[in-house]
Amino acid sequence: MGVAASKKVEKTLKDSPEFDSACNSVYSDCLNLTQHAFPGVLPYQLSDASDRLHLKLSTALPLVKKWASLPPSQTQVDQAFKSVESDSGGETLNSSEFKAFAVELFRDAIVSNVQNAVLRRVPIGIAGIAGFGMVTRSGKDLVGGLMGIYALGVAAAVYLNLSG
């Protein structure tokens, strides 16, 4: 589910006019804060920029509201910057690099939260199925099959819910 979910979230973000608008707005705010003294967003501005992006996106995109309820952590910001920084090589991020940073940041945050949701839901359901199997003295093949179907169903339901 990881790669497919990651690509689905990335496509949703990149295709969203609300995401573009939020990125452009926050990018402009960052330039204004430095009084246009630099050609782009500086690394030290990225934490505040990600908080601003989260605020704008959590009201505009249901995907962010549901799966990234908290602003990205400093660690997530640093990881997203490192992946974009290695591509750009500059000291500042221009508009397209800033958008790539935002896609990376929110994609990883959303996918991480989705994976955590699946990992929380599956063991509870499997324990219930195992308990039911013990009480009814069902065969281990039947119980094992039901556990597999349940886990697959939870993962599919969460994946299908990623479109926003």
Rank of each mutant, 00 (worst) to 15 (best):
D20Q: 15
L57F: 08
I149K: 09
L13S: 03
S21D: 10
Y150E: 08
L57R: 00
Q76R: 07
V135D: 03
L46G: 00
A49Y: 03
G125Y: 06
R121T: 02
V143H: 03
S88G: 10
L33Y: 05
E91G: 15
V9Y: 01
R107E: 12
S50T: 05
L93N: 07
V64P: 00
G133S: 10
I129V: 15
T75F: 11
W67G: 01
H36N: 11
G128K: 10
V41T: 09
K99Y: 08
A80K: 11
F101Q: 06
I129C: 03
V26P: 00
R121W: 05
Y27K: 02
V122D: 06
Q79N: 13
I124W: 05
G153T: 08
V114I: 10
V103P: 00
V118K: 11
G153E: 08
T92Q: 06
A109F: 00
P123C: 14
F98T: 13
S50H: 06
N94W: 03
D108S: 14
D20I: 00
G40K: 07
G139L: 07
T92V: 15
A155M: 13
D87E: 08
L119W: 12
L33Q: 12
V84P: 00
G125H: 07
E10K: 10
S47K: 11
G139Y: 04
H36W: 10
G89C: 14
F98I: 11
S6L: 05
I149W: 03
G89H: 12
R52E: 02
K7F: 02
V111R: 01
D29R: 11
A68Q: 01
V103R: 10
S86T: 08
D87T: 10
P39R: 02
K66W: 04
E97V: 04
V64D: 06
A5W: 04
K140H: 14
K56R: 14
A22D: 05
V143L: 04
